[in-house]
């Protein structure tokens, strides 16, 4: 049984794209995703909204859990090639954040082309702005505070270790409950 994608492929993906752009411009602040398509398990509609907005036949995607229904859905609606090696992917879908691979398993980019890195789309439990972790960096006035539930503790250690390799690194979108929050590689986690 297959599922449909966006009801209006052009305008729905443009509306979502605007919000993803805004989320990347203002890291650490959740944005509401305006249109959520149906999605086969284990991907959530929020993650599928990001994938269908950003991916096409030119962006290889890596799935954390290979799932025939999900793979077929992505191939049919976005035409994306699916790759087995995380390092070969432009986008990676993390459906189980607790079991996600180490961040250095993904493409970090090339010193001359740091944009050739993997963008992670991570399904998390909840995004709670105003509490939890404090972030600073470009796009954030003073600091931004948002708790990201469901991430393993090692994620922040691995991310801190990558900070030394800027401009190489990975950018992340966290999705939960109709919301998306972006953490580009330039955003720092502050110690409280």
């Amino acid at each position: 049984m297959m599922l449909a994608a966006f009801a209006d492929p052009v305008f729905d993906s443009q509306r979502n794209f605007r919000e993803l752009l805004q989320a990347m411009a203002r890291p650490g602040t959740p944005r509401a995703l305006p249109s959520l398509p149906p999605s086969p398990a284990p991907a959530t509609p929020e993650a599928m909204a990001v994938l269908l907005t950003l991916c096409d036949q030119a962006t290889p995607v890596w799935l954390q859990a290979s799932h025939p229904g999900l793979a077929q859905h992505l191939r049919f609606h976005a035409g994306t090639p699916l790759v087995d090696a995380a390092v070969a992917a432009d986008f990676a879908l993390i459906t189980d954040a607790a079991a996600m691979p180490s961040l250095d398993a993904f493409a970090l980019g090339d010193p001359r082309y740091p944009d050739r890195s993997t963008t992670l789309i991570v399904q998390v439990g909840a995004l709670r702005p105003g509490t939890g972790a404090r972030f600073a960096g470009p796009g954030i006035r003073d600091t931004a505070r948002c708790a990201i539930d469901g991430l393993p503790e090692r994620f922040w250690r691995e991310r801190a270790a990558l900070a030394a390799r800027l401009p190489l690194g990975v950018d992340c979108f966290f999705v939960a409950a109709r919301q998306v929050l972006a953490l580009p590689r330039t955003t720092r986690l502050l110690e409280d």
Partner: peptide
């Protein structure tokens, strides 16, 4: 019926 890809 589910219109997986409405006519375009």
């Amino acid at each position: 019926a589910i219109w997986l890809r409405p006519a375009q």
